[in-house]
Amino acid sequence: MELFLSMFTYPFMLRALFVGSLIALCAALLGVTLVLKRYSMIGDGLSHVGFGALAVASALGAAPLPVAIPVVVLAAFLLLRLSENSRIKGDAAVALVSTGALAIGVTVVSQTTGMNTDVYNYLFGSILSMSGEDVVLTTVIAVIVLILFILFYNRIFAVTFDETFAQATGTKAHLYNMLIALLTALVIVVGMRMMGSLLISSLVVFPAVTAMRLCKTFRSVIIASSVISVLCLQAGLTISYLYATPTGASIVLCNIVVFGIFYAASLLRERKTPA
């Protein structure tokens, strides 16, 4: 208990809890749309691109986030275009881009700094990674994402549920797809320092899929997945602090447990009320 309380005396832990919760909230909101639109893998692809960009930035001695953000945003638009274009299958396109970026990143890193702790942290995440500057940037981005998501909530629902109808009745579906891709890219870049580029996409996918097991309206899915996401992040961070486990992995493990509970509950409910 004393160890648990001491957690709150470290500024880096408070920073991680605060920033992490913001990122988890944004990732959960966007995740619902991404999962329903069958774009889950885009998040995964983007995080690998982010790794490549961070590796190149550190090799050049540049600040990581200002380099990574534009690169990942560009990659998001590219992946969206590829997914909409049926000539290369969308999922194959994502795999091409993500492994390509990972290869570039690893090559650059091995030629410059070597595979050191920094690289390890990029891949699997660390709570120590947040500097004061990062906190400000992340907070600004998270607030922008939240405001845009709330303002366009009804339009995002319409485009997610039925893009053709939205487009046919005069909603600029393509514009909203771009908006979703842009917001996703931003959340992934700022989130991957803490979660690790291999695990950040779980923050997008897990809470949404978990909430969909039980919730029956879009609004309740959004709310439940936000709550699940934030709680799992905080629990995961605490575990990571107490037992010195990798941050990203601890958060994902919490998500797996909650998913298991929701899945079991949905099975129980189905048995009670046979369709």
């Binding site: 009804n154 629902f157 319409a158 549920f161 919730c215 309206t217 879009f218 609004r219 899915v221």
Partner: peptide, 10 residues
């Protein structure tokens, strides 16, 4: 996962 009302309202 959406209610009938949410779909119609869209």
């Amino acid at each position: 996962p959406a209610s009938v009302e949410e779909v119609v309202l869209s």
